[in-house]
Write a protein that binds this DNA or RNA. Structure first.
Length: 483
DNA sequence: GCATGATCATGC
DNA sequence: GCATGATCATGC
């Protein structure tokens, strides 16, 4: 073994040495270590490849810490029990920061027995102490030119588990119980709150593996991860020391079950109330279409619309209005998409896959009765992995095919019809317009304000900006079991 | 009367 | 000025 510039048995020594990395780009680290110009070019290209997702971490391991790359379940700094994690963060438009990705912690054993106890797991040993190296990601430059900004020694016990202990432990149990029941193929990242079961491997089909507890049905390889929302809160709190960002709903450590019970109780306290009474009780005079969502935050005691537990667990509040005869009034809307990106992205990297694999939902149900809506129920929900893999995938494919084939239009004075699949032709999700006004450019002919309201199609036409929507019939079949 | 295309009030 | 979280409303 060559001489190392730090004591590999001592976490503090490793951390002290790591402080000199701050301010460097990944390319700097390469050039400080490679004198031959051709070798430098080769390595630069290798580590700059966006397909090599873990490659910046490998670069740091190899060229800064001089470690052998280890793909095993032992920590990177084995003798000090320290795991190295190199991860991006990004700046939001309003200047605040968010984690760039979930933090992958270690593979979930699929072909071997799962330890019952979190403390007996390889995961616990591996992530007990983490050297977290954060770089500020700028997507406009070569990834290898990004600058490393922070390095921090993170202790699982004092920094992470202390405040979120019960939830992470119950997350671990949910994941491992499903595996032990032979249901690893039904795992979804949105099943849990902070510790997620993230998919691993380029495409799911490539990464299918037989299950130890159910050899007949293969399952995707997955890794334990701390969710992106969790990491955003973590770096704001523990790296940037910014504690003003969120309001928390529950001020003590609880399991997922307890958390959900507490949150539901805060809402269901008002079960049966008419919405007009709720609006006056909580002083909401808004005429905005999102007034029901504003009401829910008020009922939860959240001043901003950022609840700590919801942000950390990627949970979205959505309100649902039922008609008197128990149908949903409307489909559920999501943000606008970029059509060209939509049609050119693989399923597992698509916004729809990412949204439904990672998001937990808190549905607040109101029901119409005579001339008002009455609070009926509050339901935590996430899309079952099977529905995502099969039904949502088929719907998505129809839209991708039609957009790539070329969308046809029929223009009339009152509306412009398009040849995208209709909501009634889909089972889980559909695309529909969402803009200030309708706008199109069809074979060069312009209708409406295309700059503001239209989105480009692959064939050069433009159509009104589209969002994706969750079908109301699907939502109804999902929530009907709850009441 | 519902499906689908169109649109809105607000906050940041 | 635009993203958000929705609801509105025409015409089949």
């Amino acid at each position: 073994m060559n001489y190392l510039p730090y004591d590999e048995t001592n976490p503090v020594s490793i951390y002290n040495y790591s402080q000199d990395i701050v301010g460097k780009t990944f390319a700097d680290i390469l050039s400080e270590n490679i004198t031959d110009e051709d070798d430098y070019e080769t390595e630069y290209a290798r580590y700059n490849n966006p397909r090599g997702k873990g490659s910046l971490g490998e670069l740091v391991e190899k060229y800064y810490f001089y470690l052998e790359i280890n793909n095993e379940s032992r920590p990177d700094f084995d003798l000090a029990n320290v795991e190295l994690k190199v991860t991006p963060y990004e700046q939001n438009k309003n200047g605040s920061y968010r984690a760039g990705e979930r933090l992958i912690l270690g593979m979930i054993p699929n072909s071997a027995p799962v330890p019952d106890n979190f403390y007996g797991s390889k995961l616990y040993k591996k992530i007990h102490t983490i050297l977290l190296i954060l770089y500020l990601r700028n997507r406009d430059i070569d990834r290898i030119e990004n600058v490393i900004k922070y390095t921090q020694l993170v202790s699982l016990e004092s920094d992470i588990l202390k405040e979120d202990f019960e939830i992470i432990l119950s997350d671990y149990e949910i994941i491992t119980d499903k595996i032990k029941a032979g249901l690893a193929h039904e795992l979804s990242e949105s099943d849990t709150m902070y510790l997620g079961a993230a998919t691993k491997g380029a495409t799911a089909k490539k990464s299918l593996q037989p299950q130890y507890y159910n050899p007949d049905i293969p399952a995707k390889r997955r890794a334990f991860s701390l969710k992106q929302g969790y990491m955003t809160a973590f770096i704001n709190k523990h790296v940037f020391n910014n504690t003003q960002t969120y309001d928390s709903i529950v001020d003590h450590s609880v399991s997922i079950d307890e958390f959900q019970q507490i949150v539901k109780a805060k809402i269901l306290k008002y079960k049966g109330w008419a919405s007009k009474d709720l609006f006056s009780e909580f002083n909401i005079s808004s005429k905005a279409k999102s007034k029901y969502a504003m009401l829910v935050y008020a009922m939860l005691g959240i001043k901003s619309n950022r609840a700590e537990e919801f942000e950390k667990s990627n949970t979205q509040i959505k309100t649902i209005r039922l008609s008197e005869n128990n149908n949903l009034k409307e489909h559920m809307s999501f943000p606008a998409i970029n059509l060209i990106e939509f049609a050119g992205t693989d399923w597992e990297d698509s916004v729809i896959y990412e949204t439904f694999s990672e998001t937990r939902f808190f549905f607040i149900v109101f029901q119409e009765q005579s001339d008002d809506y009455y609070l009926k129920d509050a339901i935590f929900w996430n899309m079952p992995q099977n529905d995502l893999d099969e039904l949502a995938y088929e719907d998505w494919q129809k839209y991708v095919d039609e957009i790539n084939r070329g969308v046809d239009f029929v223009v009339t004075p009152s509306r412009t019809r398009n040849s995208l699949p209709k909501p009634s032709q889909t089972s889980v999700i559909h695309l529909r317009p969402k803009a200030k006004k309708s706008a199109h450019r069809i074979q060069g002919k312009i209708y409406g304000n295309i700059e503001r309201d239209a989105d480009l199609l692959p064939n050069g036409d433009m159509m009104t900006k589209q969002s994706f929507w969750l079908n109301k019939e699907y939502i109804l079949t999902e929530i009907i079991n709850y009441y």
